Computed example of a mutant assay.
Amino acid sequence: MKALPILSQKRILTGDHFQSGNVSAAEGALAAGLQGYYGYPITPSTSIMEHVAKRLPHLEGHTAFLQCEDEIASITAVIGSSWTRQKSMTATSGPGFSLMQEGIGLGSFTETPLVLVNVMRGGPSTGLPTFPAQGELMQSHFGSHGDYLIPTFVPSSVQECFDFTVEAFNTAEALRTPVFVQSDQVLSTLKERYTIPANSDIEIINRGVPDSEKVVWKGETISSTLVPPMNCFGEEKKAFSTGLSHDETGHVDLTPGTYKKLVTRLDAKIRTYQHLLPQSEKYEIDDAELIIVAYGSTARSVKRAINLAREDGKKVGLYRLKTIWPFPVDDMRKTIGDRPVLVVEMSKGQLIWPVERFLRKEVSHLAEYFGSIPPPSMIVKKINSTMEVMN
């Protein structure tokens, strides 16, 4: 283990480190090729911004860091930066995520590659700024108006904060889309060991360029019909971008047929390559008579509860989501089958909605939203009562 060299001129700090989830996410962004960060400080995401501010100016090449006047300016600056072919991101939490929703819709509709790390905290409003929650599951899908789909990764460890941020940049570049990494307050400050791979072991994807080779991502060639190459501002070929309905070249076209074709393609390009996104972790699942569905830091407590339950002879397993949107419907149905399900989450009931919808059955539910991860003892108690009803 070695101390993190904050002012290192190396972009990728290969080796083992002991740091927080926020720092790990910042290092993931740098490893993926981050060039521009535009943000506004807000608890508990601020240390991402602080770490990038320390590291980014010391890296080679054209880089930019700007503390904006608010979150609306932040997300629109990220969009503008990306249209100069700069890999760009921001990070926020709670109220800041709400303020960014119009810009997120613009980013989706204009097919702008960008990454947004959202560190969830208790809400609504100011709520519980320094306590964890999982109340933005629905907002990450339906927060802006209209029909759109944004890949949303949900890490459960400091290692995954790094890995999923790299994955987010590659997904954004390959599919020309905003991508969310949805962490929470616990992971933001939790410190544990994580490993940054060697440069050669980190796949780096760059968006398509007109009249050049097609993008290859995880061994698959990305369709230029679904994901058109991106003309960027300041380059030889003219670039067009608008929040109005438009054709493949970016020119305004308000006819119903063009609009429907555009919205259909934007959804299809995500779903077509969904199998390349992180899906799930299956823990003690093979012989499980009851399967718990959870994600994020909640899943850490669930694992401990499962171990305790198994010591007591109860066969329980975990289906842990790694990607929330698009929801891994086929993977979940295949894994769970007709077995009973218990959903455990830090919200009043946002995760249970897609689980019941896509499994097409009622499931048991432990919803705790008191500003803390439900402890293993509470989960074990719910496991016992659920299995009593089953028997």
Rank of each mutant, 00 (worst) to 15 (best):
G21C: 04
Q185F: 10
W83S: 01
E71Y: 06
S297N: 12
P178I: 07
K238M: 11
Y194V: 05
I196R: 02
N307C: 05
P129C: 03
V263E: 11
S98C: 10
S74F: 06
D331G: 07
A299F: 02
E160M: 00
R85H: 11
S183H: 06
G349Q: 12
L351E: 06
T130I: 13
L116R: 04
I75K: 08
Y40S: 13
T264C: 04
L226S: 09
D163A: 00
S24T: 00
E160N: 05
H246F: 13
S183R: 01
R85I: 08
Q9V: 00
G103T: 07
P5G: 11
R207Y: 00
G39D: 04
G36I: 05
E69C: 08
T258S: 13
E60Q: 15
G122C: 08
T46P: 03
H251R: 09
A367T: 13
A77L: 08
L366A: 12
M120L: 09
E284V: 06
V52E: 04
E69I: 12
Q279S: 15
V344N: 14
G257Q: 02
T63P: 00
P228F: 05
Q35G: 07
S82F: 02
D163Y: 00
T189Q: 12
L187I: 11
R271P: 11
P95R: 04
P155A: 07
T130A: 15
L318Y: 12
R176F: 00
N231W: 01
A31M: 04
I12S: 00
T152Q: 03
F180H: 13
D286P: 04
V186D: 08
A25Q: 02
K361P: 06
Y40G: 14
V215T: 10
V344E: 12
R320F: 13
Y37S: 07
H62G: 00
P375C: 04
T92M: 10
T272M: 08
R320Q: 15
V158D: 07
H62C: 02
N22K: 06
H365C: 09
F180T: 08
Y369R: 05
T126A: 15
I291S: 01
T63D: 01
P354K: 04
E345S: 12
S188A: 15
P375F: 03
V341S: 11
G107L: 12
I306K: 06
G80W: 05
T195Q: 06
T46K: 13
G21I: 03
K314M: 14
M387E: 04
G296A: 11
T92Q: 09
Y37G: 00
I204H: 03
A53S: 14
